[in-house]
Write a protein that binds this DNA or RNA. Structure first.
Length: 117
DNA sequence: TTGTTGACTCCCG
DNA sequence: CCGGGAGCCAACA
């Protein structure tokens, strides 16, 4: 019953939540021992300018997530998160545990460990 | 809805 | 190396 032309949902579902789910899908595909930049994830989603959005989506992940968030680093191959709660230390340890090597400047070689589908 | 913040990236001094 | 500013997008109060 809809006597009026009022459409049930004239607009598309919230794109924001959808964006985060897409981020998680991409990150889950990054193989063990490989890394991808925030901008790289955004580019695979078709939004090359949404690097910050990727970081924001990953920051919202719960601690018990199955999403390998630690495989996402900045465009220089460096860990971008703060270490106030040892987050950076944890991320680096997880990556090193997978064979990723960081040089003296704390930088991983994207040419060597970078991943692309 | 608006304003702020930040796990980004690019550009310039 | 360190700042500042701009553009971008999502999370949150």
């Amino acid at each position: 019953m809809s006597p009026q032309r009022t459409a049930p949902h004239p607009r598309a579902p919230r794109p924001t939540a959808d964006f985060s789910l897409r981020v998680y899908d991409v990150v889950r595909r990054i193989p063990r021992g490989r890394i991808l930049s925030y901008g790289g994830v955004a580019a695979l989603l078709g939004s090359p300018r949404a690097a910050r959005g990727v970081g924001s989506a990953l920051a919202a992940l719960p601690d018990d997530t199955d999403v390998p968030w630690w495989r996402v680093v900045n465009r220089n191959g460096r860990i971008s998160i703060s270490n106030l709660h040892h987050g950076a230390t944890l991320q680096r340890a997880l990556l090193e545990g997978e064979g990723v090597i960081f040089d003296a400047r704390g930088q991983a070689d994207l040419e060597r460990f970078g991943w692309e589908p």
